[in-house]
Nucleic acid binder design. Structure first.
Lengths: 251, 251
DNA sequence: AAGCGAACCAATCTGGTTTTTGTTCACCCC
DNA sequence: GGGGTGAACAAAAACCAGATTGGTTCGCTT
């Protein structure tokens, strides 16, 4: 790297790390000191680059903890996830299909003007992103934004629970699988519909749009699941039942 | 203490500690070894006394942690406490209206025959009860049964959260108030409709019936709330603002 | 004046140690 | 032999000191 250690360079370096590093949104990035060493930039420049990334919502930092990809996990969500324990992807999808449309409707009724502005900003960021992982990032950020703007604590807690489950590791590859079965543009158009309905203060429209969006993803996920089940069956046939079958009962 | 160090003595000693020791239910009692020293009893006796107290629900113990007065704090309880504080009764009702109809629909799809039998039994118990409080008890038991039979963990957790909130003290009088504004028979008829739809494996019917049921209670609760607000206004006018108003801001 | 390096601060994590309840064992008295 | 007794051991949680990490400030250089 003979180029001057400008903030742009550090930024792209970190972005590359995020992208290549299997960004399970809770993924931890190298420390600032390490970034200084690897990029050759002074810490001030590194910090500036990280600050801009944080402002854009791509990463978050916490003193003594580290720098992480994605959005910080709400304590209420992890607590709820602990209470809930493990659950099947289909169950989670059903629950989302139950809760998020209502959240969208409430959001249309109650969100502020600046909430709507932020939603449009999130949608625009998603539009500008190229990488699939980054798109997922903006997607979940938008859903979280809608949930927050609905101003209903119990439902938001339920959403945080689902969001936390979805952030788990085993969901990452599942989403990666389901991504291949859907068109990337479709999701974006649906998002725009949702935000448009919210901005028009149309709760029924927002509910319907969110419902359609989730149903599409639900279908994609189910397709991915059967594909995965097929793989598992193949593996099972290959190994001929040498291990326990606790994870695949009557699937 | 010239009396023999029997379990009774230790028991009364601990009880005195609990009573005099300002037992904020999470209060911590002395360790077993300390109790041995102070009472002169062998550890075995102390443990037996503590075990009986624990069996009676007066205390609870945990390895490595200690012995505490009252009941252990369930995670779902602390979650509910976290959510309950800042959330308005209307919000909780909205959340129920979002989640429980879907639970009823899923229940209609998935519950077993014996689940249905148990629901009918619960409804019959509610029919046979005379006291209003007992009726409420059977009511919540039925709702819990439906939630459990829906076989969807995240939604069931969300329901448990709402149920826990509803069990809080401030909800008790609110329900007592709202009870006067509705007819007791109405709720029973609605319950029968719900169970009938579930028994008929009719998810849409179950969803609609549950929705109607909750809407009726929602209306009763709103009426109770305005009545309560009126009382609060009266009280406020009577006292002319001598105390803090933290509990009634812009109601 | 702006950038840089270093040191320092505060919050967190990490590893080992201690405390506390739970369990087991050999022993003693009736 | 049955039941009680004391001690030691096991397991889980709390506790504490040191290292780690993001956040901040201070001189210094260009």
């Amino acid at each position: 790297m003979t180029a001057p250690p400008t903030a742009i360079l550090v930024r792209s370096h970190v972005l590359a790390l995020i992208r290549s590093g299997r960004l399970g949104p809770g993924n931890r990035l190298p420390t600032e000191r390490v970034l200084c060493e690897t990029t050759g930039a002074p810490r001030r420049v590194v910090r500036r680059a990280l600050a801009s990334l944080e402002a854009e919502g791509l990463i978050w930092r916490h003193q003594g903890k580290g720098t992480f990809a994605g959005q910080p996990a709400e304590p209420i969500g992890v607590l709820a996830a602990e209470v809930n324990g493990p659950s099947h992807p289909i169950e989670v999808m059903e629950a989302r299909l139950c809760i998020e449309p209502e959240l969208a409707a409430l959001c249309a009724l109650r969100c502020s003007a600046e909430d709507i502005q932020r939603m449009w900003a999130l949608a625009r960021h998603q539009y500008e992103a190229e990488d699939d992982d980054v798109i997922e990032l903006w997607d979940s950020a938008l859903h979280r934004m809608i949930a927050k703007s609905a101003r209903n604590r119990p439902l938001q807690t339920a959403f945080a629970l689902l969001d936390e489950i979805r952030a788990t590791a085993e969901w990452q590859d599942l989403r990666a699988l389901s991504r291949s079965t859907r068109s990337l543009g479709e999701s974006r158009a649906q998002h725009q519909q949702i935000i448009a309905a919210i901005a028009a203060r149309d709760p029924d429209g927002a509910r319907a749009a969110m419902c359609a969006h989730l149903m599409a993803r639900h279908a994609a996920m189910e397709a991915a699941l059967v594909a995965l089940a097929g793989e598992a069956a193949q593996a099972f046939r290959a190994e001929q039942g040498t291990d326990d079958n606790q994870g695949a009962e009557h699937a």
